[in-house]
Design a protein around this nucleic acid. Structure first.
Length: 488
RNA sequence: GGGCGGUUAGCUCAGUUGGUUAGAGCACCUGCCUUUUAAGCAGGGAGUCCGGAGUUCGAAUCUCCGACCGCUCACCA
């Protein structure tokens, strides 16, 4: 800590002591306001004689003028100007005012009025210190622009930027709107374990942790899928879970090691039913949160109005790079074709991974408008049901918008014998070095052997949906406390 | 993990070819000011120039090593 900051803190500590010395508790327990800042502004617009109000908030600006001063007081609703006058407040009250700093929380009583310039203002009759701040806040005009500091000390970012506050408010409303949409359709929200002995339900590397008393390694979940399906076995026909998922993979503008997903499962539905559900849900959320289904993202308009474009993965790849993967029944021939088209192909990849490669390198970034890609290779989807008549494919779709995947869904595999076979294939891939291959989960298989109804399942990336609906190009702008390296 | 860029006062930023004591605005302190609003006027204090090593008579500036951040590529949702 530099000398200069120490001086600023020392000055505030001295003021704190002076407040204490005058018999005032600078950190009192309770202050019951009668109005928020916004309510005071509304009150002033009404007719009738102004009545006294009691408000509280943080001092965010101060303009002293000798024996009077104006302050800006910010609370959760907005800000209101405060006028303090020695004549009105009295000697003692004005002395207390002089011991206040930017950043302090105060309460005050007074009558609202309009100044000559028309600013809604409260003339303070009494001041109460609610919390003395010891450290200075970021500069009032530019706020906090140091990106690292914004993430590490998000509270300062929030204090100094209404825009940032707005993004997280919107995120909260997106999730609330999603809950309401699902609840209204009769879905039941549930909670399943984050600590798991098998990290299944997705192709991803898990975080490992350890339970001391049981002396067992556990994984942080990489998906909620396998537990939600157990609930289908148990007889809950429409369930969903909104929760944190952990994946031990790279960090980027589109990836955080922990992120929020919504997974839902509906008995007696298939992926076509889920598809309409997704487009309706996203349109509903956009409408209820933003008032429109057309949003601007990264300089382009995205229209979420249903129906969204539907195209098979095969056709989408054909469209972008003129490769029809159906014509290449095995990995070597597909890899050869990809190399022929000038693509760098990692050796040893299976056919499914090659197709995934085509999707992510050639197709994904082109999908600005909401698009469903349908029918994925079975190797990539060990938990999805095969497409009738096309044994290499499963009934699966992914939804894209703004060049990002935002949802993944399939008709759920409910044949326990086939599921067991699929797990075996995944185990082989894992032995061959594929760390992302599905871990066989015997307990889940036993559940399925007791009978799982046909069902449609869905996973939505909530952070990415929030990015799209708030026009943010980095996932860190929609996660309050994104993962950063700790300084050594 | 690779490439490129960045890190200077509490905050936002300048800093010339390597050259005197590293500057400005906000914030802070003192004085004046009872309708201001990025209040104003006058004065003042405040720095581990990200860390370390090196080159040099002399380094915020050049070189090397390291830390962290951003963008981007690869992996992933």
């Amino acid at each position: 800590m530099s000398t200069r900051l120490e001086i600023l803190v020392q000055q505030r500590l001295e003021k704190l002591e002076k407040i204490r010395a005058s018999g005032i508790d600078p950190y009192p327990h309770l202050y019951q306001r009668t109005h928020t800042a916004q309510q005071v502004v509304a009150l002033l617009k009404q007719d009738g004689p102004p009545r006294e109000v009691k408000v509280s908030g943080r001092i965010t600006a101060s303009r002293p003028m000798g024996k009077a001063a104006f302050m800006n007081l910010s609370d959760g609703s907005g800000k209101i100007q405060v006028y303090v006058r020695r004549d009105h407040l009295g000697e003692q009250g004005y002395d207390l005012f002089k011991l206040l700093d930017l950043g302090d929380f105060i309460g005050l009583t007074g009558r609202p009025f309009y100044t000559h310039t028309g600013e809604p203002t409260i003339e303070a009759a009494s001041l109460t210190v609610l919390s003395k701040a010891l450290l200075p806040l970021p500069e009032k005009w530019h706020g906090l622009t140091d990106v690292e500091k914004r993430y590490r000390q998000r509270y300062l970012d929030l204090v100094s930027s209404d825009e940032v506050k707005g993004i997280f408010h919107t995120r909260s409303r997106i999730i609330a709107s999603m809950r309401r949409f699902l609840d209204d359709l009769g879905f039941m929200e549930v909670e399943t374990p984050i600590l798991q002995s098998h990290a299944g339900g997705a192709m991803a590397k898990p975080f490992t942790t350890h339970h001391n008393v049981l002396d067992r390694d556990l994984y942080l979940r990489i998906a909620t899928e396998l537990h939600l399906k157990r609930l289908l076995v148990g007889g809950f026909e429409k369930v969903y879970e909104i929760g944190r998922i952990f994946r031990n993979e790279g960090i980027s503008t589109k990836h955080n090691p922990e992120f929020t997903s919504m997974e839902s499962y509906e008995a007696y539905a298939d992926y076509t039913a889920v598809m309409s559900r997704v487009e309706e849900m996203v349109a509903h959320i956009a409408r209820s949160v933003l008032g429109t289904t057309t949003v601007e993202y990264d300089g382009r308009q995205i229209d979420f109005t249903p129906p969204w474009r539907r195209i098979t993965l095969r056709d989408a790849i054909k469209e972008q790079c003129d490769i029809d993967f159906a014509e290449f029944p095995d990995a070597p021939s597909l890899a050869a074709k990809m190399k022929e088209s000038g693509m760098a192909v990692e050796p040893g990849l299976g056919r499914g991974k090659l197709i995934d490669e085509l999707l992510s390198t050639a197709v994904e970034h082109t999908l600005t408008q909401p698009t469903f890609l349908l029918d994925y290779p079975v190797e990539l989807s060990p938990l999805a049901k095969r497409k009738p008549g096309e044994p290499d494919l499963v009934e699966r779709f992914e939804a894209f918008a703004g060049g990002m995947e935002i949802a993944n869904a399939f008709t759920e595999l409910n044949d326990p014998l086939e599921q067991r076979e699929r797990f075996k294939e995944q185990a082989k891939a894992r032995e061959a070095g594929d760390e992302e291959a599905e871990m066989p989960d015997e307990d889940f298989l036993v559940a399925m052997e007791h009978g799982m109804p046909p069902a449609g399942g869905l996973g939505v990336g909530i952070d990415r949906l929030a990015m799209l609906l708030t026009n943010q190009q980095s996932i860190r702008e929609v996660i309050l406390f994104p993962q950063l390296k700790t300084r050594e």
